[in-house]
Structure formats: structure tokens, C-alpha cells
């Protein structure tokens, strides 16, 4: 079995070049034309962004709808959009636009944000680099995960969902290679509702779920 190569990543956030949105209509129009990296950033890269992680909503659009537009209905609907369940970024865009269009058809007045509370569209570059560390046996994995940076957790568990095999994290992919020994752990990892964990919490949960591997021979 090949060793597990621990990668690390760091996010570099920049302005997308789109003008900010002052109201829901503008938000909708910008989302319709923004680049895929912008959507991906505001949905999936939030755990690596240096901002407070709101426990109620895991994407920036839902947080903005709740806190800046005071539209709780829209915030709940946007907050329920799971980017990892969408087959592609274009699929995600379609779902988000559908949610906003529905809301626009319901409200009698377009909700506005106060000056200074506009939505700014951003995107990021992710630098991925090899940490040089390797995990050679199943029993070493829990301890190795416990030592991983937030960047590594993000890359191997969240970012991995977009890579081949799509929808699968790197840990499951590697553990799956151990056949029957690994199978229950792949299943346990699959059951983690990761969307509502911070990266720190996710690391703790991964270690907890994989803890019994420490005693395994492989």
C-alpha cells in the first residue's frame, strides 16, 4: 500500500473585480455573472477565511442575507444549499439563483443593506504543497491527523470532495485501500456531517472516529 502523502494548503484571498451588491437584486445579478472561483470561495472556502464562523450558516451569502438584509427566510434557504451535493459549480449557481429568484418573487420590496454592509465578491488562490510527511500504516493515521494544520484538514477532507473520485475525501480513499479492515472507517467518515464543523472541530471529529485504528496492524 502506498503511504498517505500529507499535503498542506494556504489560501490567498483577492477582490474579484465585481462591484459590491447593495441589495438582493444586485446580489442575484452578480452571482449570475461571477466567475466559478467566486462562488466556490463564498461557499466552500469559508472555513479557511479569516472571519468568524457563524454556527448558523456556512456560506457567506446566507450570513449576509441574515445579518445585513435581515431576511431570515432567505438566509435559511441559502444556508440549506449544500455545495458538495451539487454536481458542479454551474449546478450550484443554478440552485442559488433559483433560491434568490423565488425570494424576489415573494417580497414586495427588495431588501437593501445599510451603507457599509454591502456584499463584496472575492475569490482566492489555493497554494497546495507537500508537507513531506507520510503516513505508512493505518494505526499512524489518527495521530497524524491530530497534528495536521487546518490547511491539511481542508485539503484532504473538504477540497478533496471536488477531486477524483468526486464526493470522496482523501482519508476514505486511502483507508478504502485496506479492504475489509478499512471498510467500517470509510463508512464512519462518510457519516460525518462536516458542513457544520469548523476545521478545528472537524480535526477533532476525524481523530475521534479513527481513534480505534491506533491498535490496528496494517
Amino acid at each position: 500500500m502506498n503511504p498517505f502523502d500529507i499535503m498542506d494548503c494556504s489560501l490567498l484571498i483577492r477582490m474579484s473585480g465585481l462591484p459590491p451588491a447593495y441589495n438582493l437584486r444586485e446580489l442575484r445579478d452578480r452571482i449570475a455573472v461571477c466567475g466559478p472561483d467566486v462562488l466556490y470561495h463564498h461557499f466552500c472556502e469559508t472555513p479557511l477565511s479569516p472571519t468568524f464562523e457563524y454556527p448558523d450558516h456556512r456560506n457567506d451569502f446566507a450570513v449576509w442575507a441574515s445579518r445585513r438584509l435581515s431576511d431570515k427566510i432567505l438566509a435559511e434557504r441559502l444556508g440549506a444549499v449544500d455545495p458538495y451535493a451539487c454536481p458542479s459549480i454551474e449546478g450550484l449557481r443554478e440552485v442559488v439563483l433559483d433560491v434568490i429568484d423565488e425570494r424576489l418573487s415573494e417580497v414586495t420590496m427588495i431588501p437593501w443593506a445599510r451603507p457599509g454592509h454591502e456584499f463584496y465578491f472575492m475569490e482566492a488562490t489555493t497554494l497546495v504543497f507537500d508537507s513531506g510527511e507520510r503516513v505508512r500504516a493505518l494505526r499512524e493515521l489518527p495521530e497524524a491527523i491530530g497534528r495536521m494544520s487546518n490547511g491539511s484538514i481542508y485539503f484532504h477532507f473538504l477540497e478533496a470532495q471536488r477531486r477524483q473520485p468526486v464526493g470522496m475525501d482523501d482519508f476514505s480513499n486511502w483507508i478504502g485501500g485496506f479492504g475489509k479492515t478499512g471498510a467500517p472507517y470509510v463508512e464512519a467518515l462518510r457519516r460525518i456531517d462536516f458542513y457544520f464543523y469548523t476545521l478545528r472541530e472537524l480535526r477533532e471529529e476525524l481523530v475521534r472516529v479513527l481513534e480505534p485504528l491506533r491498535g490496528k496492524r496494517s
Binding site: L11, L12, Y40, A124, T125, T126, L127, V128, E159
Partner: peptide, 16 residues
Amino acid sequence: TLMYALVGQTTEHTVM
């Protein structure tokens, strides 16, 4: 990270 990206002249989303 920024210095790395600038030296490598990259604005791609993911850079190995």
C-alpha cells in the same frame, strides 16, 4: 503565500 504566487506569476485557483 502571496510572494509565492507572485514569483510564480499565478492567479489560477489551485496551484500545486
